[in-house]
Design a protein around this nucleic acid. Structure first.
Length: 115
DNA sequence: GTTGTGACGACTT
DNA sequence: AAAGTCGCCACAA
């Protein structure tokens, strides 16, 4: 039987693959890690992620293109900073997933650094 | 063992 | 557009 920690590890592995300047969602990360409906697992895994792992945790946002961390939290503002620093634009507090969403297959084909 | 909760998300009212 | 409902997974009480 797989322990919880093993599941976290699978999530972390996927998160680590998100390229700089791109974002993914909790649901899509979970899906790619083998948990078709495990969006919440991704959230758990990221909260539990050791700093030592140096994961690009900030590249994971919700399916609405919004930062999911509760307002008022310190990391919330930090996540936005880190993303904007990578060139991810926020419009009305939202990221356009069409543009910045990490699409593994399409990435190789149509991702242009400029746009 | 049960219950409530959440950095979620798809669907239905 | 907004508010419920339900499925999912781990965790705390």
């Amino acid at each position: 039987m797989a322990r919880a920690n093993d599941n976290y590890a699978r999530i972390w592995k996927v998160v680590a693959q998100i390229p700089r300047g791109r974002v993914s969602t909790y649901g899509r990360v979970a899906e790619r890690a083998g948990f078709p409906r495990g969006a919440r697992l991704t959230a758990q895994a990221l909260r539990a992620a050791p700093k030592k792992a140096k994961l690009p945790w900030h590249r994971v946002i919700n399916a609405q293109g919004r930062i999911a961390i509760p307002k008022g939290s310190r990391s919330r503002a930090r996540q936005r900073e880190l993303l904007e620093r990578e060139g991810v634009a926020f419009v009305n507090g939202r990221v356009n997933l069409e543009r910045f969403g990490w699409q593994t297959s399409l990435d190789a084909m149509l991702w242009q650094p400029d746009d």
